[in-house]
Design a protein around this nucleic acid. Structure first.
Lengths: 224, 224
DNA sequence: CCACTTCGTTGCACAATGCAACTAAGAAAG
DNA sequence: CTTTCTTAGTTGCATTGTGCAACGAAGTGG
């Protein structure tokens, strides 16, 4: 029996121009050498503790990024998805603020709007679609989108992040109520957004204890 | 480099005596031969279309059951979980009515209440815990629990299934409103539950078009 | 100092949820 | 045959959550 190919792929998502973007890299080995694809590669049994560890390594090696949020997405498998043979890819997704990607050391990294992704090798398009669906679902009842924000941000900024992900406007008052209930943010004393020709907004940061932990709401933010 | 061991494990859940139970089997091969564990085994690259297919095969071969609901749960991996070496297990979970297990051809199958499961081989305890968490979460905003019901059931029966899974009483009126909104059930004309010394309840069945498809609610059933 | 814009809050209308009380419909007891 | 008991299923109302509009607040720029 042929050995099964074990890989890990990472869907690195960020927000640019009010739209979710996915980070893609040119593959440097066959199959599909030179083609844009998700950062990924073989699981190294002698090096990786588990596939989550492999995903972190992949992100670090291929993009120079350490993401505070990295979650297992799903596993994709079968004969057809990889020309090399029957394969398993354990997919992960990560969320980072756009600034983190901009300052990462890998310039050959491409950002594509997730709804303009087409014709990727393997089943990477399906993996991305699954990740986007997961992020949208989870955003409607959790604090997930704060991982797309810089370390300090205003509530109007955060609202526009939610709106970009969910693809629908949110009522300002309801939004602020929900965020307040989650109880994950604290105002940065005396820090206001500057430079705009109107009343400045209060800057917030995530409370320390929620830095790496999602907060869930028992009711969704907006109807569908 | 050592080849990575690729397996599939299935968490087969059912409801018995108002409590979630998991189906376990005595392993017939080492490691842990003779010990109770989740039904599972190697992925067969020459036989299985993908891991979902492998999971169905595992269920069929080891328990004789074909489950209408079988969903990928998560993938568990690493050096430590299997004494044979670095391994990946793609875990699936299935929900079936108790009667299906009772009439299955495999008598050596054990049902254990999920909160009394202890000391299983590999990381099967963790896999079960993950499955139970998933089922509880999903039940609060979906029709998932109907997969634990026989093909005909009353609304009070369905409510008690929800209550058993969620571990909390649900308001009768709210429950019926939610189920009604999901619009997945139809009354079986003229069929009433018999044999009880009180007003008989209407029997319902799942509408054909929802037989294999979940219906989601945009609001959770009960607060936590 | 006034116009303009967005921030952030308040009050209120409307919708969803939960509770209690009610009627309905059977079996069992007298 | 009538009464009692128990659960099914519904109705009305109190409570809570959500969405909208309007308002004062606080900055910039003319």
């Amino acid at each position: 029996m042929n050995a099964i190919i074990c890989t890990v792929d990472v869907v690195l998502l960020t927000l640019q121009d009010e739209a979710l973007h996915v980070a893609l890299l040119q593959r440097d080995h066959p199959p599909f050498a030179g083609v844009l694809a998700l950062p990924g590669g073989y699981v190294h049994a002698d090096e990786d503790v588990d596939t989550g560890d492999a995903a972190m390594r992949m992100l670090r090696e291929k993009t120079g990024i350490e993401s505070p949020y990295l979650e297992q997405l799903a596993t994709f498998s079968g004969r057809a998805r990889d020309p090399r043979g029957w394969s398993i890819s354990v997919a992960y997704y990560a969320l980072v603020p756009w600034q983190v990607i901009a300052t990462a050391r890998h310039p050959e990294l491409s950002l594509l709007a997730v709804d303009q992704v087409r014709a990727l090798p393997f089943d990477h398009q399906q993996i991305i679609a699954t990740a986007v669906r997961r992020v949208r679902d989870k955003s409607s009842y959790s604090s997930l989108p704060v991982y797309l924000c810089a370390d300090r941000f205003t509530l109007p900024q955060l609202q526009s992040v939610y709106e970009a992900i969910l693809g629908t406007p949110i009522n300002k008052v309801s939004f602020r109520r929900k965020i307040d209930e989650l109880d994950i943010l604290e105002p940065v004393a005396g820090a206001l957004e500057t430079g705009k020709a109107h009343r400045p907004a209060q800057l917030y940061r995530v409370k320390k204890r929620f830095y790496r932990q999602l907060s869930l709401s028992d009711r969704a933010l907006s109807s569908r």
